[in-house]
Design a protein around this nucleic acid. Structure first.
Length: 311
DNA sequence: GGATCCTTCGTATGTCGGGG
DNA sequence: CCCCGACATACGAAGGATCC
């Protein structure tokens, strides 16, 4: 069940036009980094290269350097998809799925719990990505052929698991990292506050984030700015804005102490209780063969011609 | 399966003023 | 004097949801 949910999540994330147009470029670049060989270590380390991978798409793309509004919009959506793809890839076989928040995939009990009301105005931003860590369940009830995953999980809630059994986290993705680091900072505060005394409330319909085993808020950026060393120091405001958010801040580059972690640290930090084996890389090593079959939807088959997402 | 509404997606560039 | 953060501004498209 969890793996079919993951499949739906990844296919949904990669089905947008911006992702479909970018993926062939990404895949090509990935194969040059990996020399067409895959192992647990290599997959895991892709987290250090996501920025280069992401940038590969604007190069093969006619939109290069245009700075058109089209590339703006598409870029943000594409980064979100790439992060979703990568995290799910590292989480295969686990009980954790990362989804793009979309009605078909996101259960209502989660939407309700993370709702933020400002007076009576529902004002939560659309969460970019959300991870859901499920408990180990022996037998999942049958899911209807046409039933949406969102309604399925709503239906089996409190039958096979309760909210207390799962952990969730919001993952805010942004391609740049400057002034707008305020956004994740402020939302993290809202979600971690114990109450406001004014008309701000978190949660609705009797559900709140405290109903979960845990809740985290994280920030993942490319970043798109050119001069990384100059712009992002330990002392920079934009860095400090996000350094303390509950789920951590990450980028598509190797970890730089005090500034940002590589995205490959995400799982160890937030989800270590949920990975199938203590040694994540060893586990992934054993899954590599399945990328040709069960997990072919990741598009990492050895033949280049298959570097396309089937719709 | 359109048509429509609504939100979100950043960039480049420049000015201003505080602090070191 | 130099560096850095805050602030302002225009722009149009992507994509999801919803309603026929």
């Amino acid at each position: 069940m969890i793996e079919s949910y993951r499949k739906a999540a990844v296919e949904s994330a990669m089905s947008t036009n911006s992702a479909k147009n970018s993926f062939p470029h990404w895949a090509k670049y990935i194969s040059t980094i990996t020399n067409d060989r895959l192992s647990g270590r290599i997959i895991f380390d892709l987290g250090d290269h996501l920025r280069e991978i992401f940038n590969a798409s604007s190069q093969g793309n006619t939109r290069v350097g245009e700075n058109t509004n089209s590339s703006v919009s598409a870029g943000g959506a594409a980064w979100e998809s790439l992060v979703c793809w990568y995290l799910n890839l590292c989480l295969i076989g686990s009980n954790v799925v990362v989804i793009k928040s979309k009605k078909d995939l996101l259960p209502r009990f989660i939407t309700d719990a993370i709702a933020v009301k400002y007076n009576n105005f529902k004002s939560n931003t659309e969460a970019d990505l959300i991870y859901i860590a499920f408990p180990k369940v022996q037998d999942w009830p049958e899911k209807g052929e046409k039933e949406l995953f969102s309604t399925y999980f709503d239906r089996v809630l409190s039958i096979v698991f309760s909210m207390k059994d799962i952990s969730i986290g919001v993952i805010q993705t942004k391609t740049n990292w400057n002034d707008n680091a305020q956004i994740p900072m402020l939302w993290d505060m809202v979600y971690s506050a114990k109450g406001f005394g004014r008309n701000v409330t978190v949660g609705s319909k009797g559900r709140s984030i405290e109903s979960f085993a845990s809740f985290t808020y994280s920030f993942v950026t490319v970043p798109s700015q050119k001069d990384i060393d100059k712009n992002y120091k330990v002392t920079s405001t934009s860095v400090n804005r996000v350094r303390n958010i509950s789920g951590g801040n990450y980028w598509g580059l190797p970890t730089k102490d005090g500034v940002a972690d590589s995205l490959n640290e995400f799982i160890g930090r937030n989800l270590s209780d949920y990975i199938p084996e203590a040694d994540l890389i060893g586990w992934l090593d054993k899954q590599v063969a399945l990328l040709e079959t069960d997990y072919s939807y990741f598009g990492l088959q050895k033949e280049h011609s298959k570097y396309l997402i089937q719709s």
